[in-house]
Design a binder for these strands. Sequence first.
RNA 1: GGGGUCGUAGUUCAGUUGGUUAGAACGCUGCCCUGUCACGGCAGAGGCCGCGGGUUCGAGUCCCGUCGACCCCGCCA
Length: 612
Amino acid sequence: MQLDFLGDLKRTLRCGELRATDAGKTVTLMGWVNRRRDFGNLIFLDLRDRAGIAQIVFDKESNAGIHERASELRNEFVVAVTGTVKLRDAANVNKNMPTGEVEVIATELRLLNESRVPPFLPGDQAVTASEETRLKHRYLDLRRSEMQFNIELRHRVALAIRDYLNSQGFYEIETPYMTRSTPEGARDYLVPSRVHPGEFYALPQSPQIFKQILMISGFDRYFQIVRCFRDEDLRADRQPEFTQIDLEMSFPTEDTVFAVVEGFLGAAFKTAGYEIEKQFPRMSYDEAIRLYGIDKPDMRLPAMTDVREAFPLDVLQTLAADAELPVVAIRIPGVGELSRKERDEHKTLLSEKQSKAIKFFDDFKRLEKSWPDTVAKIKQLTGAAEGDLLVVVAAPQRTEIGDARKSRRQSEEVYKTAGQLRLALAQRYAARHKAFEGKQFKFLWVTDFPMFEWDEQDGRWNAAHHPFTSPHEQDMAKLGGGVAAARDINSALGDMRSRAYDVVLNGTELGSGSIRIHRQDVQSQIFEAIGMDLEEQKNRFGFFLEALQYGTPPHGGIALGLDRIVMILAGAPSLREVIPFPKTAAATDLMADAPTPVSETQLKELGIVVKK
RNA sequence: GGGGUCGUAGUUCAGUUGGUUAGAACGCUGCCCUGUCACGGCAGAGGCCGCGGGUUCGAGUCCCGUCGACCCCGCCA
């Protein structure tokens, strides 16, 4: 088919911008053929661009040549149309479209490009293609109005955040993408060095050390909307490369950091059309575990209640539950009457291991027959109303007796298992309680995380947040057990609380940060507590330990996942819906077909020998 | 690393206890229609049932392996 050149033709406005006020004007529209409808001597052409769809009319009687040409147009062809904007007759107005009051009577048509028949039509109302097909032809998928909206939303959110942080005196400063591997936490993506065969850069998991060094350098308010890389297995809400809103401040307290985050989240949500609380509620880690059984509570549903006091000792004994461990009631409001079959399915919500660790009771009609007072008391303690689902979780018996730390660990297990059951039940009955519907945003700060957590695999304590997190002042004395304490599950390290905090939205961890260590001696002790002797410290973090010795100001910060924020604002089920070119669950790019093998020449240059 | 769901026309799917020539819808091609906008009517093309092996007289269907997509656990300081 004969193609036309654009020549000096100028687009006057976007198709989707056409309005009744343009009536009488001559306009030039450019876009993709969304759909052609022939009707005898008339051709209706829906022309689409990022702003929307306009209807072009080709009339054979008034212009046979252009009508003939228009009949050759196919879906996704790129055209430029010049014509006169005309108000539609009342009968032909389409109220479902912003441009539905007008149409363009075409006087000139230029075909700028053809298109192969696409595997799916970007103009279709709903997604008709599988995700695999969409990802393979991502350029077509991104033409869909939903994706255009998501990407625009992402742009606006990032812009609002930049504006806000700029107004608060933050500089956006870039940090290297090719840096040093400091294998702690996630696996690194490595980049081989040609100049230094056998040596590697690492892509940053976060700009953590660089932003701390920027504080040492006197840039007291830094931020960066920055790509980070982690070579770990994917999930719906985890991509190997993702974008963080990363910030750091000198001389802050927790309050200072919280206020900045509350400020920019307010601006970001406002640009999407939502007002959120000026200040988010706060809760310590211990409280979160006790009330929700998880460190990222979903506040859209009520907390759990310890109902131990409702059970007289003899009842507990009959139920073979342990009085020293928590008895936790889960309440999901407005679920209504459950069938026997539905209640039977509750067992399947927990793993085998979890089921063994707890007992749960959800048949209150039966419990009520034997122990009416207990059930009445539980209802009172939980504030249960008619139609609320109540489940009581108890531990059968203590496995580790005597030691306060051991018993605390087991209590925590009960809370956590109950918390998982709570979430699983909430998910299971989401259609009935409706608490997850609509745009309801429940933010929360979780504070005072444990400094260390026990690493079962390595048999040592590990930094719960990261090893640059400051412990609480009053817990400093618990340090100093040296490398021996690092290997002892019962050492005082397990009691230490840190100045780490998470910002949580509807049960999703949006971001995580801390007040950092600014003293070299403390930093070194923390490294030691996670089993790193001086030699290893010097090898891996020598440059940083040295920098800390040159007048490091107290500092702290946070990093939030931009992708997750946009995902929640868009109401999307996965990060892939808000990332233009995402990876599949197997970390591949279906469109570009990455990763790929590389040539032997390339490998040779890098000094890499691959055994076949 | 482990568990689960899925893979059939360009696309999204159906396909009964294994049994003639593998279907539908949308899309695609051609013709018809002067007011469509999820247009309508008529006609048509389009398939190595992901790939490899096995069981069987016979496999889209059963078994084993493999590749790919998705979800979850582990992992993600």
